[in-house]
Design a protein around this nucleic acid. Structure first.
Length: 799
RNA sequence: GCGGGCGUGGCGGAAUUGGCAGACGCGUUAGAUUCAGGUUCUAAUGGUCGCAAGGCUGUGCAGGUUCAAGUCCUGUCGCCCGCACCA
């Protein structure tokens, strides 16, 4: 009898063996096919590793270990996305330097990750806060700047009064700060932007060339939000002559139904022609109201349309020549389209609501609905009416004809627009990459010379944020005051730092050559490793990190740093691990599971098995404290197979080839739960028989090795005279042996299973019918119809 | 409002894409082992009727297509995620 499995001893033994012998450290090797597997590097928070991390990392871990056994040269790196607010806040609260906090947190993460037995290449660890790393983050920013893709602009920004930072649109969900939950206010501020909008079309197009789950593609498409329509010029009569007011519309076909224009409260027309506005007081009051209104209210609280008519100005419909009134209303946004719309209340519900409230005329120009009840917005049905140039046409044709007509006369033109906004690229905080720009009173914005990179963060005594939304770095006069690299005159440094998402936008490249001093990535290393073959991460990053990093990679492609326009070949996304109560894990709910506790109680292998067995990898799954016991039993049963080992026995009850195929296929298609279930089934078969052959045992160990590397390594060594499992090959199957010679065919009568017969594979219908006769199912009945699906099922329709 | 997904035993979840519903695991019940608790092993386990063989019923709900539906179609209810006055 084998003694009980001691996971503590065994797991320690193998981790020591792997890490001391550097088994997972790789070099470029042209003789071997490469596989680059990537997981989203963690933010090293003080709370340590979360079970969510375990699920996120375990998929690529399994694939990486499998690919190694299959002879691939596998790059499976790990790093830390370590700049960011929580660290800075914790550092302030405990009066330490964020550097110290970061180092301590990373150290803790490394220890935890090694205890799980992950097969990371520990020689390539990347830390975004390391000056040798952020030197290149800054370098990439400078390249963007030099090509006009980074610019500073004064705009209204989302400002979190609690974190005291300007937030990107992506960070202020529903008008509350993503980080702290405080309500976001609008503030005017100088902000750095990256022109991601210029890449919108290519980011959209690139999705056709990558293997991402459909939901990710759709989400990114929606985020980019491409729409095609027309920009149309309405002349506005002012004292200074005609002002060409551009409106954006996707429905130029409805131009005969325009009964008023609406411009955003921030629209420059209001400022530029103040003098012409008879009720300027009223208009300005409305502008101020809109300004202070938080985004939240603007969207949710105000179902009721509000607005003010601009007296003293009228616009002219370029097609009909009719004079129409102009309104300003906050349902029109300055940052989409042109900030001005032509209102067609008959065929746009928002315009309809507005027209009803303000008693404006509603004209039907497409038949098919009842515009006295609601707007008729259908683009598919309906034909044009009351529209002399396009009467009788279906909508789509009318759109094209109308644009052609307007283009020919210079009234309007085709226009494509995107919802995605430029990326606000700065924070007023300390713990981030300094933006390498010098402001010179004479020369303007001057890039820090590349040879001076990295531009290091100065050590500050006090790095708390300021209420006036300026960066703590501004307080460090020695650092701020410098000389202009161009004219040599006195100048000041940019004091804002880069956002959290900067460092993570290119880290996957750095892993290929983490110590390269001449470029972000060594071209030779890139040539070998190329694209990430498989990248796993969370759905929450789809419209942030995943799109930002595609953008940066595309830019680096344009400037010749990389040779693939898309960074990731394949992407998968794990579902959330919920608490045992089915709710999202959170401190306040008290339903957080600490992976350390699980490792201490059951061992790393059990944790790894369970996190993958818990359910469909891509769907959310509640943590189940009881379920883990089953996985623990499973490892014990595996261990006890030693006592059943025989050199020979009847193995016809277990089709190893079929098992290999199922498990391999399931791993590759991210169905780890069923892969493990198949191995459990095999174990049940073996237990029922009480014997296991060496071949079966070895096969099972190899199949399970990527999931549970410790116990399988130990068992392999024990039963094979000290041989090492990592030197073996992943099992392959013989397709010819997948199928047995005989098949059991369920016999249905009127669609219900009434019996079953065993026949030779490929048996004819008559042979099966003959076999059925012996069952005595058909007494007193006559068969009217037979449906036979060879080797599958037979169904008899009887009377 | 728009987009994506989901609804299957007491629970987590399977189901080769129209072909045996409930794999695998948890839990439960019974038996064996054990002084006992735990562990381990064996068996049973959707509901219901029946001593039994067996029958009926069953994938949110209501219809439909089909020899055959968890899977397809129509309608409907509920839940989750993303976007959201995007012109």
């Amino acid at each position: 009898m084998a003694k009980d499995y001691n996971f503590r001893e065994v797991e320690q033994k193998w981790q020591k063996y792997w890490y001391e012998n550097k088994l997972f450290e790789v070099k470029e090797d042209p003789a071997k096919p490469k596989f680059y597997g990537l997981i989203e590097f963690p933010y090293p928070s003080g709370a340590g590793l979360h079970v969510g991390h375990i699920r996120a990392f375990s998929s690529i871990e399994v694939i990486a270990r499998k690919k190694r056994l299959e002879g691939y040269n596998v790059l499976f790196p790990i790093g830390f996305d370590a700049f960011g607010l929580p660290t800075e806040n914790f550092a302030m609260a405990t009066k330490q330097h964020p550097r110290k906090v970061t180092d301590a947190n990373i150290k803790k993460f490394v220890e935890q990750l090694k205890k799980i037995g992950y097969s990371f290449d520990w020689s390539r660890v990347v830390d975004t806060t390391d000056p040798d790393y952020y030197r290149w983050t800054q370098w990439i920013f400078l390249q963007l700047f030099k090509r006009g893709l980074a610019y500073k602009a004064t705009t209204m920004v989302n400002f979190c009064p609690s974190c005291k930072v300007v937030l990107a649109n992506e960070e202020s969900q529903n008008g509350v700060c993503d980080r702290c939950g405080a309500e976001v206010i609008q503030k005017e501020k100088d902000v750095w932007f990256l022109k991601i909008r210029e890449y919108a079309e290519r980011l959209l197009e690139g999705l056709d060339h990558v293997d991402f789950p459909e939901k990710i593609k759709v989400e990114q498409q929606n985020w980019i939000g491409k729409s095609t329509g027309a920009e149309i010029i309405f002349k506005v009569k002012t004292s200074g002559g005609d002002y060409p007011l551009k409106v954006y519309t996707t429905r130029p076909d409805t131009i005969y139904g325009v009964t008023f224009l609406v411009i955003s409260p921030e629209h420059p027309l209001l400022q530029e022609h103040k003098g012409d506005i008879a009720n300027i007081g009223e208009v300005e009051a409305y502008q101020n109201q809109a300004k202070t209104k938080r985004e939240f209210e603007r969207i949710y609280m105000s179902k009721e349309k509000t607005g003010v008519k601009i007296n003293g100005m009228v616009a002219v419909n370029p097609i009909t020549g009719t004079e129409i009134p102009i309104f300003t209303a906050d349902y029109v946004m300055m940052d989409y389209g042109t900030g001005a719309i032509m209102a067609v209340p008959g065929h746009d519900q928002r315009d309809w609501d507005f027209a009803k409230k303000f008693g404006l005329p509603i004209i039907e120009v497409i038949s098919g609905g009842d515009v006295t009840v609601e707007a008729y917005v259908d683009k598919e049905g309906g034909t044009m009416v009351n529209s002399p140039l396009i009467n009788g046409l279906p909508v789509k044709e009318a759109i094209n004809k109308m644009i052609d007509y307007m283009e020919a006369r210079g009234i309007g033109k085709r226009k494509t627009d995107y919802k995605m906004k430029d990326w606000a690229f700065n924070r007023q905080r300390y713990w981030g990459e300094p933006i390498p720009i010098i402001n010179c009173p004479k020369c303007g914005q001057v890039p820090v010379p590349e040879e001076e990179l990295p531009l290091r963060l100065p050590d500050l005594e006090d790095f708390s944020p300021t209420d006036d939304a300026s960066s703590p770095l501004a307080k460090c006069k020695d650092w701020v005051n410098t000389t202009c690299p161009i004219c040599g005159g006195p100048a000041t440094r940019e004091t804002d730092t880069m956002p959290q998402w900067a460092g993570s936008s290119w880290y996957f490249l750095r892993y290929m050559s983490p110590n390269c001093e001449t470029a972000p990535v060594d071209p030779e290393a890139y040539k070998y490793w190329g694209q990430v073959d498989w990248y796993n991460g969370g759905m929450e990053h789809v419209t942030r990190h995943l799109i930002y990093s595609r953008f940066w990679n595309l830019f680096l492609y344009d400037i010749g740093v990389v040779t693939n326009p898309e960074p990731y070949k394949r992407r998968s996304a794990q579902g959330l691990i919920l608490g045992a109560d089915g709710e999202k894990m959170s401190k306040s709910r008290g339903n957080i599971v600490n992976p350390d506790d699980v490792v201490n109680a059951y061992g790393a292998d059990v944790l790894r098995i369970f996190i993958l067995f818990i359910g469909d990898y891509e769907k959310p799954a509640p943590w189940s404290p009881d379920g883990i016991k089953g996985c623990s039993r499973f490892t014990a049963r595996l261990w006890n197979l030693q006592d059943m080992l025989v050199e020979d026995c009847d193995t016809s009850d277990l089709n190893l080839d079929a098992l290999i195929k199922k498990v391999s296929d399931d791993y590759e298609s991210i169905k780890f739960n069923t892969a493990i279930a198949h191995i459990m089934t095999a174990l049940n078969t073996i237990y029922a028989r009480g014997k296991v052959t060496r071949k079966e045992f070895n096969t099972i160990l190899l199949l399970l090795n990527p999931v549970a590397p410790h116990i399988t390594s130990e068992l392999y060594e024990i039963i094979n005279n000290g041989a090492k499992i990592e030197q073996q090959s992943f099992p392959t199957y013989d397709p010819a042996k997948l199928i047995s010679d005989t098949v059991e065919i369920p016999v249905q009568i009127m669609g219900k299973v009434r019996g079953r017969v065993t026949v030779a594979r490929g048996a004819s219908q008559d042979e099966v019918l003959n076999a059925i006769l012996g069952l005595g199912l058909l007494e007193g009945k006559s068969v009217v119809k037979v449906i036979y699906v060879p080797d599958r099922i037979i169904n008899l329709v009887v009377k």
